[in-house]
């Protein structure tokens, strides 16, 4: 018997994310029409980069935590931070979800970076930074023992098949 997705209360919408090491890219998200995140510097432990790629027109932005432009981002050529951001997003969300969100068209199995048609975009460091802080604020919230009946709609899934 086929189960109609449209008439299922438990229809899966978000695929479970895959766990990844956070040292290189501690934070990334698909939000506000961008892939955006925080990338650790490869050479300086005290430096991080705030990087983003817009959906559709692939506008690139990359700045240090001191709000200086990334030296590796030459015009519309993606720097290593943006490459790392895209690679880690592919690990976390899977290539299909990232490609769909950013509207990247590549042959199946090809690296998403090859499908990027980059452009220069305005500096989004402030927005990405505040998004990262909002992300971290979840770790400060207290747990709850309330029954939360609506969580029946949100099963934990992803057992190894």
């Amino acid at each position: 018997m086929s189960i109609p997705y449209e008439r299922s209360s438990a229809a899966p919408v978000i695929e479970p994310v895959r766990q990844r090491k956070l040292a290189k890219v501690p934070f990334l998200e698909l939000a506000e029409g961008r892939l955006q995140g925080v990338v650790s510097s490869g050479s300086d432990v005290s430096r991080v980069y705030v990087s983003s790629i817009t959906a559709g027109d692939h506008g690139l932005s990359c700045n240090t935590n001191n709000n200086r432009p990334c030296g590796g981002l030459g015009g519309s050529y993606p720097c290593n931070h943006l490459r790392l951001l895209l690679a880690e997003a592919t690990v976390q969300y899977g290539p299909d979800r990232v490609a769909r969100y950013l509207r990247i068209e590549v042959a199946e199995g090809a690296d998403l970076i090859t499908g990027l048609h980059p452009a220069v975009a305005p500096n989004r460091a402030a927005e990405v930074f505040s998004s990262f802080l909002r992300h971290l604020s979840y770790l400060e919230l207290t747990p709850t023992t309330d029954p939360l009946p609506e969580l029946q709609w949100f099963p934990a899934s992803g057992a190894v098949r």
């Binding site: 766990q19 979840y138 023992t145």
Partner: peptide, 10 residues
């Protein structure tokens, strides 16, 4: 009976 904690996606 249940316990729930806020977390982040990763």
């Amino acid at each position: 009976t249940s316990v729930a904690a806020p977390k982040v996606e990763t």
